[in-house]
Simulated assay, not measured.
Amino acid sequence: MRLLFLGDVVGRPGRNAVTERLPELRRRWALDCVVVNGENAAGGFGITEAICEEILGAGADAITLGNHSFDQREALVFIERQERLLRPANYPPGTPGRGVALIDTASGARVLVVSVMGRLFMDALDDPFAAAERALSDCPLGEVADAIVVDVHAEATSEKQAMGVFCDGRASLVVGTHTHVPTADHRIMPGGTAYMSDAGMCGDYESVLGMAKEEPLRRFLQKTPGARLEAATGPGSLSGVAVETDPRTGLAVRVAAVRLGPNLDETWPVFWD
């Protein structure tokens, strides 16, 4: 099975990069499942229903969120009816929406998508490891699910790596999001799980984490109240990770970074070309 995960979509440049390039990539690489983190899609803060439908319409099978899940208040309502939009599973009980979804792909395979959020340097939520354990135990790889993708939305690389170790051998891919900077540590772990500490972002890299540079810089220099952060408006790049799995086990056999667009050295899964 061929899986593609795309990192945090930031503002209009990120949305444009996804909607313009994803349909072609699905065809070119014969992708079975695409998961996109969309928590910064609405101007850098949350997601709206219209944007959610736009990303799904471009070819995403599921959209994961994170600490900005409910920055757009309408998400409190439409997340209940959109089963392919996932906020972190370790939000407290009673939070609208869901953190786990079993996706039926066009090829007939079933992909479990799990969203969890870290706790180091983040909002205090329930235990992400316990949430991941419940999801993996309820829907085992190779038995119920043909592939499993775990999005770890976290600040600390150590917490993301620990989640990778925790899920190794039980998930097809464990990938970090949130820091918006693609890491160079994509690999297949000893148990057969593909791992990457951060998929990077889909957005304008001539920025500060996807935001127009002036206000973030001013905040570091002055430490005083100022203007609202605004998403950068330059050309967007696509950033993420591609994985091919063994159809018998659901574990990874190939993994590659994906970076397409300006301001980054381009790379893609050459084993699919």
Rank of each mutant, 00 (worst) to 15 (best):
P269F: 00
Q82R: 14
Y91L: 10
T249W: 07
N263G: 08
G11L: 02
N16P: 06
P93T: 07
L85E: 07
A30M: 10
D273F: 05
G11F: 02
V36R: 07
N37P: 12
A106F: 04
L85M: 10
H180K: 12
T249D: 00
A232M: 00
G118F: 05
V165Q: 11
V175T: 02
E206K: 13
R27N: 06
A130C: 01
A171V: 07
T157E: 14
G200W: 00
L6Q: 12
A30E: 13
T105V: 00
T233G: 14
Q222T: 14
E206R: 05
E74T: 06
Q222V: 04
H186N: 15
T183N: 03
S115Q: 12
T193F: 03
S172W: 07
F166T: 01
V18R: 00
M211R: 14
D168T: 07
I188T: 08
P269W: 04
L125S: 02
R28M: 09
M163Y: 13
L31D: 06
R73L: 09
T105I: 12
V111W: 02
F129K: 13
R26P: 02
S172A: 10
I55F: 01
E266Q: 07
F129W: 02
D146I: 00
L125K: 09
W268C: 14
F121K: 05
A184L: 13
C202Q: 09
P262G: 10
V258L: 15
L76T: 07
F129Y: 15
V208T: 04
D273Q: 07
H178M: 12
P88M: 00
R254P: 01
T267E: 15
A194P: 07
G108A: 10
P182N: 01
V149I: 14
S239A: 04
E215S: 00
T157V: 13
V18F: 02
G226H: 11
P128K: 03
L221C: 12
M1T: 09
M117G: 13
A212M: 10
I63Y: 02
T64N: 07
V208S: 06
V174S: 11
A89V: 11
P190W: 08
A42I: 09
N16M: 15
R12A: 12
E159Y: 01
M196K: 09
A257Y: 03
D123A: 09
